[in-house]
Simulated scan of single mutants.
Amino acid sequence: MAPIADVRRDLASLADPHRAEGLSRFLQMTPGGYGEGDRSIGVPVPDQRRVAARHWRELSLAETTRLLGSSVHEERLTALFILVRKFAKGDEEERGRIFGITLANTDRINNWDLVDSSAPYIVGPWLIDKDRSVLDRLAESSLVWDRRIAIMATFAFIRAGDFQWTFRLGDRLLRDPHDLVRKAVGWMLREVGNRDRAAAEEFLNGRYQVMPRVMLRYAIEKFDPQRRREYLSGAIQVTGPARQVTQNPSHQPWLQH
């Protein structure tokens, strides 16, 4: 049996129609939802990770890309788990190919769990020491998943102590219309705050009053209760001129490369 068929067989053996129904609601695969048109077979994520661990070596990049094109949500997520493993173990050439495959298939990375399982582990790590302008292009995309990929990729930079691009894209996406992007920006700002509270608050203080509420709530989630109340009530006193939010971060000198 071909390796890709082995993966599909293993996932099908773990399928649970009742779980699939719940997951379809959770990931809004129902009509009108952001995941409309997708199909779940109800395989738990830990089981998908085990299937990926079992097969990642035998599956070629071409076969993994085919799996990423599947109409089944769990098959696409398992394909991403395989790509992440291959990326972590690969040499520079293979890592570059995996990065290219990921960006060429963002229309198949079409839910928040798919984005969050790949962007911080492939896109961000590849760009650590490279030109990151592709993130600006993704942040300008009309596809919500591209925009979430852009901000979630900065998680890799945050882990390395580099917050510049989280702030850069935070400005660009500050008024994004989609809740999933707003939450992702807030989450990344929270991760900055976990490492450098002063840097996070410096960014927030000039913007928190115009931020979408859900973005702000995510960003300040780990602050102490009194500080959260001050932000949510608008009681933070900003000292000095607030940095202005613009639609083009290149106009902001503190965000330059």
Rank of each mutant, 00 (worst) to 15 (best):
A235S: 14
Y121V: 03
R197L: 15
Q226N: 05
A156P: 07
G234I: 04
Q247H: 11
K130S: 08
A88E: 15
M211P: 07
I158Y: 05
A200Y: 09
E74F: 06
F99S: 07
D131M: 06
W56N: 06
P120S: 08
T246D: 10
Q48C: 12
N105T: 11
R137G: 10
F26L: 12
D116R: 00
I122S: 04
G69I: 02
K130C: 04
A198L: 06
N111K: 02
A153I: 03
Y208S: 05
V210Y: 09
R227Y: 11
R148I: 03
I122Q: 04
V72P: 02
D176C: 02
E36K: 05
G42Y: 11
V51Y: 06
F167N: 02
D136P: 02
A5S: 15
T106K: 07
Q256S: 13
E202S: 14
L232S: 03
N105H: 15
G22M: 11
L80C: 08
Q226W: 05
S117A: 14
L59F: 10
S117K: 01
R168V: 00
V245R: 13
L216N: 01
D171Y: 13
V214W: 03
T246W: 05
G124F: 02
S142V: 11
L169R: 05
G240K: 00
G124Q: 04
T102I: 11
F26Q: 06
D38R: 07
R175E: 15
G170D: 08
T78N: 10
H178W: 13
P225F: 04
P3W: 13
G22R: 11
N111Y: 11
H251G: 15
T64C: 13
E140V: 01
S233I: 03
R49F: 12
R57E: 14
I149P: 01
V181C: 02
R172E: 04
N105F: 11
A199H: 04
V43W: 08
I82W: 08
R168H: 04
T154V: 03
P253F: 06
R57G: 14
E21G: 07
G186E: 10
Q164E: 14
D116C: 00
R228K: 15
D162T: 00
L67C: 07
S71M: 10
V72T: 14
T166K: 01
N111H: 10
L114P: 08
L127E: 04
L135R: 01
